[in-house]
Computed example of a mutant assay.
Amino acid sequence: MTPARTDPASQDTTASDFESFFHLSLDMLCITDFDGYFKQLNPIWEEILGFTQAELLNTLFIDLIHPDDRIATFEEFQKLLNHTRSIGFETRYRCSDGSYRWLRWNATPCPKKKQIYCIARDITADRQTESELHLALKSLTKLKLALDQAAIVAVTDQNGKIISVNDHFCELSQYSREELLGKTHRVINADYHDQVFFQEMWSTIRQGHVWNRVVLS
Results as ranks from 00 to 15, higher is better:
A190D: 13
A125I: 12
L216Q: 11
M1P: 05
K138N: 12
E178Y: 02
L147A: 15
T204C: 15
Q128S: 11
M201W: 00
N159Y: 00
R85N: 12
L133T: 08
C170V: 06
D194A: 05
T91S: 13
L145I: 05
L137R: 15
A15N: 06
D69T: 10
D35T: 09
A190P: 12
L29Q: 01
P111C: 08
E55R: 13
C118K: 12
K79E: 11
R177K: 14
S16A: 13
Q11H: 07
Q53D: 07
A15G: 06
S20W: 01
M1Q: 10
Q174F: 02
C95G: 08
G36L: 03
S139Q: 10
T124R: 06
E47Y: 09
I163W: 01
K142G: 10
E47K: 15
L103Y: 03
I71A: 13
F198P: 00
I62P: 03
D122T: 07
N212F: 06
M201K: 02
H83L: 13
K142V: 11
D12S: 10
D7K: 02
L29Y: 03
L80G: 03
N82E: 13
M1H: 05
M1K: 11
D191C: 10
Q199A: 11
N189W: 01
F61G: 05
A107W: 01
L137Q: 14
S173A: 13
P109C: 12
D7R: 08
R5N: 08
L172H: 05
A146E: 09
F21R: 04
T129E: 12
F18W: 09
Q78L: 13
D12N: 07
D194I: 09
R127Y: 04
F89Y: 12
F38P: 01
R92T: 03
A190C: 10
V155T: 08
S99T: 13
I152F: 06
Q149D: 10
A150F: 01
W102D: 07
D191M: 13
V165I: 08
E47R: 13
R101F: 06
S96E: 07
L172N: 05
L60V: 06
D27A: 14
I116F: 05
S96K: 14
L60M: 14
D33M: 11
V165M: 02
R206G: 05
F51Y: 15
K161G: 00
M201Q: 04
S20F: 09
P8V: 07
A4I: 08
V210Y: 05
I163G: 00
I87W: 06
L180W: 02
R213G: 04
D157C: 01
T6W: 01
V215H: 04
F38A: 09
A146Q: 11
S139I: 03
A136F: 04
D27S: 15
I48V: 15
L41A: 06
W105K: 06
K39N: 12
R121H: 10
D33F: 07
G88H: 09
